[in-house]
Structures are given as structure tokens and as C-alpha cells.
Simulated assay, not measured.
Amino acid sequence: MTTTTKPPARLHHIGVQTFDLDNSLAWYRDFLGCRPTWTATAFSELTRSRLPGVSRITEIVTEGVRLHLIERDSRERQHGPEDRVQFQHLCLAVDSPEELRATLARWQRLHASGDYEFLRPDPPTGIVTDAEGVQSFYCFDVNGLEIEFTHLPESAR
């Protein structure tokens, strides 16, 4: 007999390390429509030991996606891999191929504006379509972190 059980945990937020919180806040606001919900500037010993040099953490949200932007004081690598801006990638789904194209165009428009400092000069990829009709493109945020945007047709859901 097979039983379906509720997963023991569900995604609450994704932490994104940054060396320029104001730049990140502006970019995520303008690109994804995120809005801040809280900011912390005092941290427990545990947080300070996990995130050396942490100065601010701001939570931002949009459409059920919650990110914690974690500002670090220094770009210098002092301890090890934990001092790098890091995560592999975040994938966000959109409702239509048109919305996917509009998201790509918005990234290009914001990048061309010169209003943001990007740590990586890489442009976004083109939109690719796989054998099931899933369409995706990849881009980098201002911190050099990879974001995938995807549209899944009904047949692939």
C-alpha cells in the first residue's frame, strides 16, 4: 500500500549574499517587482559565525517568492567558500511564452539603463525550447547569481 505524505518541509526563502544591498534591492524591485518586508541589522552569534561580516539582511517578496538579501561588509575572501556570493541557480516560472519574452526584454532594458552595477558582464541567454515544449532562459542578477525563467506548457506540467 502506497501512502502520500506531506513533505517534512517546504521552501520558505532563498538567501542571496550581496556586497551592495541597495543595488540588489533596486534591481530586484525593478526586475521582479519585489518589495521589502523587513530589515535586520543586529544578529545572533550563530548568524555572525555563519556569515562573517554580515551587516544587513532584508527580506523581499513578490508573487509568493521570498528572498533574503544578505549584505556582507567585504568583497575580500577571508575564510573560505562561505565568503562568496553563492547559490547555483533559482528557477522562476512564468505563465506564458509572452511573459517569458517580456521578462527577457525587461532584463535587457534594465541592464542597458546603466542604473545598476553588475558583477558579471554576461548577457542573458536566448530563449530555448526543449523536446517537451518547455521554454527557458538564464540570466544573472547584479551579484552574478544565475536565475532561470521558464514557461511550462500544459502538456509538460
Rank of each mutant, 00 (worst) to 15 (best):
V16T: 07
V16A: 15
Q17I: 05
T18F: 03
F19S: 10
F19D: 10
D20H: 08
D20L: 05
D20T: 03
D20S: 07
L21Q: 07
N23T: 03
N23A: 07
L25T: 00
A26C: 00
W27E: 01
Y28Q: 06
D30F: 06
L32A: 13
C34Y: 13
C34N: 11
R35A: 15
R35P: 00
P36M: 14
T37S: 14
T37A: 09
W38M: 13
T39L: 07
T39A: 09
T39H: 09
T41F: 00
A42E: 09
A42N: 05
F43D: 13
S44P: 06
L46G: 09
L46K: 15
L46I: 08
S49V: 02
R50S: 12
R50E: 14
P52K: 05
S55A: 10
R56I: 00
R56H: 10
I57V: 12
I57T: 05
E59Y: 09
V61R: 15
T62F: 11
T62I: 07
G64K: 13
V65C: 11
L67K: 03
L69R: 02
E71P: 01
E71A: 09
E71W: 03
R72C: 02
R72D: 01
D73T: 08
S74V: 00
S74W: 02
S74Q: 03
R75N: 12
R77Y: 05
Q78C: 06
H79F: 11
H79S: 14
G80I: 02
G80F: 01
P81W: 12
P81R: 15
E82F: 05
D83K: 06
D83I: 01
R84I: 05
R84V: 03
V85H: 10
V85C: 12
V85G: 08
F87K: 04
F87D: 05
F87V: 03
F87E: 04
F87N: 10
F87G: 02
Q88W: 06
C91A: 15
C91K: 10
C91V: 04
L92K: 11
L92N: 09
A93T: 07
A93C: 08
A93F: 07
S96E: 13
S96Q: 13
P97K: 02
P97T: 03
L100R: 11
R101V: 03
T103N: 01
L104V: 06
L104G: 10
L104Y: 10
A105K: 11
R106E: 06
W107R: 00
L110R: 04
L110F: 03
H111V: 04
H111S: 13
A112Y: 01
A112P: 00
S113C: 13
S113A: 15
G114P: 05
E117S: 12
F118T: 05
L119I: 00
L119E: 10
R120H: 13
R120P: 02
R120Y: 11
P121D: 15
P121Y: 06
D122Y: 04
D122K: 05
P123V: 07
T125V: 06
G126M: 07
I127T: 03
V128D: 14
V128H: 13
T129R: 15
E132I: 02
G133K: 07
Q135I: 00
S136C: 02
F137N: 00
F137G: 00
C139V: 04
F140V: 01
F140K: 09
D141H: 10
V142N: 02
V142Y: 01
G144D: 12
E148S: 11
T150I: 11
T150P: 01
